[in-house]
């Protein structure tokens, strides 16, 4: 119970201190809006193309939103030593890191709803499976948050976190099957697509929006779950090794 009081208060503090700040709210809206507009213009197609671009835009909005925020909330707190206060609290490292990522996950889910709501005004989304979409969105937000955590605990400075994040984000953006279908990628790049979590996230969302998923939902959820567990525990291990010196 005591651990959960700490969890809840860390979560609420982060939401108030970081995520509800006007620049982050505007980031959460402007970024998906820009992505949607860019792809809509680029496709040259009519409004009927929106369901095609919606899964990718949603996944990338979540990915960029969560990873950027965690670089600030963790790396910045490590830098100014407020994170040391959290490490001194009598709660497990696992619970502490879940508390620190919970805000980013919620922020990511909210980010993901922004393109959906915008698309709902402009296109027919009657084929959308809301349950699968929500579950897929949650998994994309969780895996993105844990990827952000993995990056944040691997660096010392906020700018290093942003740089390292891009090392993961941009390959994922181009290889996850959103810009180019995976089967049209050069043969040597295709295996790389299948070791990126966003490939599975985009596929779930694609299936939820218009039934165009290439892989079974069960497989995609399983792979995303494995990425979540792996990234989370690898990050915890890095904190134990590098921060508890």
């Amino acid at each position: 119970m005591k651990g959960w009081i700490a969890f809840w208060n860390i979560f609420i503090k982060d939401i108030r201190t970081y995520y509800l700040k006007p620049p982050n709210i505007s980031w959460g809206l402007i970024f998906p809006l820009s992505w949607t507009g860019m792809f809509f213009i680029r496709s040259g197609a009519g409004l009927e193309s929106i369901p095609e671009v919606l899964p990718g835009v949603t996944a990338l909005s979540v990915l960029f939103g969560t990873t950027s925020m965690l670089a600030v909330t963790i790396t910045f707190e490590k830098k100014n030593r407020t994170f040391e206060r959290l490490l001194l609290a009598p709660i497990s490292l696992e619970l502490l890191m879940l508390a620190k990522t919970a805000g980013a996950i919620l922020f990511g889910i909210a980010n993901g709803f922004a393109p959906l709501i915008l698309a709902g005004f402009a296109a027919d989304l009657s084929g959308l499976d809301p349950v699968i979409f929500f579950l897929g969105l949650v998994m994309v937000a969780v895996v993105s948050a844990f990827l952000g955590l993995f990056v944040a605990v691997a660096v010392q400075e906020v700018f290093e976190a942003q740089t390292l994040s891009n090392f993961f984000r941009f390959p994922m953006m181009f290889l996850c099957g959103f810009f180019f279908p995976i089967e049209k990628l050069p043969v040597f790049l295709r295996p790389l697509s299948y070791v990126l979590p966003m490939t599975y996230g985009v596929d779930i969302l694609r299936g939820a929006v218009h039934g165009g998923n290439k892989m079974a939902y069960g497989l995609s959820f399983l792979v995303l779950g494995a990425f979540c567990v792996g990234l989370f525990f690898k990050s915890i291990g890095n904190v134990r090794r590098n921060w508890i010196i």
């Binding site: 009081i5 700490a6 809840w8 959290l86 609290a89 009598p90």
Partner: peptide
Amino acid sequence: CFCAALYGMD
């Protein structure tokens, strides 16, 4: 209050 919450105080 935040520091107290870290130690599980209600």
